[in-house]
Amino acid sequence: MQIDRSIENAVMITTVKGRLDSSSAQRLDEVLAVIPEGSNGVLLDFAELVFISSAGLRVVLKAAKLARGASIPLAVCSLSPQVHEVFEVSGFSALIPIHQSRETALVALT
């Protein structure tokens, strides 16, 4: 799993590539534990995420709770069909906004 971070229009973007599973989830959890000062939004870009299990969902939920506590919107974008289905079946699609692309997510978050 590879994690990259960037900031665009004061939105903290975290790009996750590869597998977000029981052995890699902890690393993402550590990266998402702090929302940088001055962030107006948090975006998880999953365009190159090929796999997610409940261990990964746990980290996404924790990040969503952290953002909620800080009154900052959090969204995810660019899910593959399989990852999208995991969000649907787990009920996460009702909790967390899902956008088709990074561009539409950034419009919604800023």
Binding site: S53, L61, A64, V86, S90, G91, A94, L95, I96
Partner: peptide
């Protein structure tokens, strides 16, 4: 089974893996 309708604040992960 997990409570799939809970809010972000109340949501738990326990049982979700088996459900999926």
């Amino acid at each position: 089974p997990p409570d799939l309708d809970a809010s972000i604040e109340d949501r738990r992960i326990g049982g979700l893996g088996v459900h999926l």
